[in-house]
Amino acid sequence: MQLFLFVIFLFGLVFFHELGHVVSAKLLGLSVQKIGFQFQPFPHFYVAVNWPKKKIHKFVYLFSGTFLTLTLFAVSTYNHFFELSILYWAFFVQFIMEFNPFYSDFTIAFVSNNKLNKGVKSYADNYKVQFQKYQFSAKWYFHFIIWTSTIILLIKFKNQFV
């Protein structure tokens, strides 16, 4: 039963995360090409849009999903929803996936800041090339440390307040 609830809550959080991307795309005037699911690099849902031309639009679009998750987290904390501890663990897993330095909206945001490579056929191929340069760089380690700190803070928050 606990596992079933966990899966339901996690899917709910994923739904709201992607909804954040869709809403921000509509507000920014970006056309949503597809909402799908893929297995690479790990099984996840995605929203594909016409890539924003302005940097600020790109960041707003990419971080809107996490913003919605953080909002839901704040609302849940304020309303003591975490008395149902399985909901907290669903948020915990969702935050680990959203902030991770291997493949997330944050890595896409940091990597897509770099210039496009000549000769790559698609944005996916370009991402792979740019990510290989980004991974294990100083900026990446900074991201990794922030991610680790977030996990530790979430554990301590659970132990102290939930």
């Binding site: 990794f144 996990i151 530790i152 554990i155």
Partner: peptide, 14 residues
């Protein structure tokens, strides 16, 4: 270097 410290800190915290 980084991964063992990461595992230690996370598992130890949990």
């Amino acid at each position: 270097v980084a991964f063992p410290i990461f595992l230690f800190v996370i598992f130890g915290s949990i």
